[in-house]
Amino acid sequence: MRISWLMAGLAAAASCVAVAQDVLPITRSLFLERAEADGVSLEPADVLRRGDRVVLVMDWDGRTGQPFMLTSRVPNTLAYQRSGDRAVEVSVDGGRNWGRIGSLRRGERLAAPEEVTNLRWRIAAADGATMRSYSAIVR
């Protein structure tokens, strides 16, 4: 199954985050995760198939000097698995309610990672990192 529209959508969704009066351009990249004898490798994704494991990376150029919120919608064609940052907050209802995986509920039960619809990271002014990532499985 070819999912080129997913990749095109991710490339076109190069977002920007407003930081005070400035705009911080965010670059998004999509990588295919491959299991190898000596570990795992990541390679740029050009064709995706159901069941493929992918890593989405959002990065920006340098520190802003100000705190900001980085948010990302999880495409419907992906099932979220985990983030590269434990401080990620997630939503399972399109961004109306936020919390940690394991604390959000869907009715009477705890929400599963695959039900995550949105992610957000609070980036501190002194945070030296210039990227955040998450992994998912192609539905």
Rank of each mutant, 00 (worst) to 15 (best):
M1G: 14
W5V: 14
W5Q: 15
L6I: 11
M7S: 08
A8Y: 09
L10A: 07
L10G: 08
A11S: 10
A11C: 08
A11Y: 08
A12E: 13
A13T: 05
A13N: 09
A14F: 00
S15M: 13
S15V: 14
S15C: 10
A20S: 11
Q21C: 07
Q21W: 11
Q21N: 10
Q21R: 14
D22P: 03
D22I: 08
V23I: 12
V23R: 15
P25K: 07
T27V: 14
R28A: 13
R28T: 13
S29G: 10
S29M: 03
L30W: 04
F31D: 00
L32N: 03
L32P: 01
L32W: 03
L32C: 05
E33Y: 02
A35V: 11
E36G: 12
A37C: 10
A37R: 13
A37Q: 13
D38G: 13
D38Q: 14
V40G: 06
S41A: 12
E43S: 12
A45K: 02
V47K: 12
V47N: 10
L48I: 01
L48G: 01
G51E: 06
D52R: 01
D52G: 03
D52F: 01
D52H: 06
R53C: 06
R53F: 05
V55M: 11
V55S: 08
L56R: 00
L56S: 02
L56M: 14
M58E: 12
D59I: 05
G62S: 01
R63I: 00
Q66N: 11
Q66D: 10
P67T: 09
F68K: 01
M69V: 15
L70V: 10
T71F: 02
R73N: 13
R73Y: 02
V74H: 06
P75R: 05
N76F: 10
N76C: 08
T77G: 11
L78E: 01
L78I: 04
A79Q: 15
Q81H: 05
R82H: 11
R82K: 14
G84K: 08
R86C: 02
R86A: 15
A87H: 08
E89V: 06
S91E: 08
V92Y: 04
V92H: 03
D93P: 03
R96H: 12
N97E: 14
R100W: 08
R100G: 07
I101G: 04
I101T: 09
G102W: 06
G102C: 02
L104H: 03
L104A: 11
R105K: 10
R105P: 00
G107T: 06
R109C: 04
L110Y: 06
L110C: 04
L110D: 06
A111H: 00
A111G: 01
A111R: 00
A112H: 12
A112K: 09
A112V: 12
A112W: 05
A112E: 10
P113F: 05
V116E: 05
V116T: 00
N118D: 15
L119N: 05
R120F: 09
R122S: 14
A124K: 07
A124Q: 09
A125W: 02
A126Q: 14
D127T: 08
D127G: 02
G128V: 13
G128T: 15
A129D: 10
A129E: 08
T130K: 05
M131P: 03
R132G: 00
S133P: 00
S133T: 15
Y134Q: 04
A136D: 05
A136E: 01
A136G: 07
I137T: 13
I137L: 07
V138N: 06
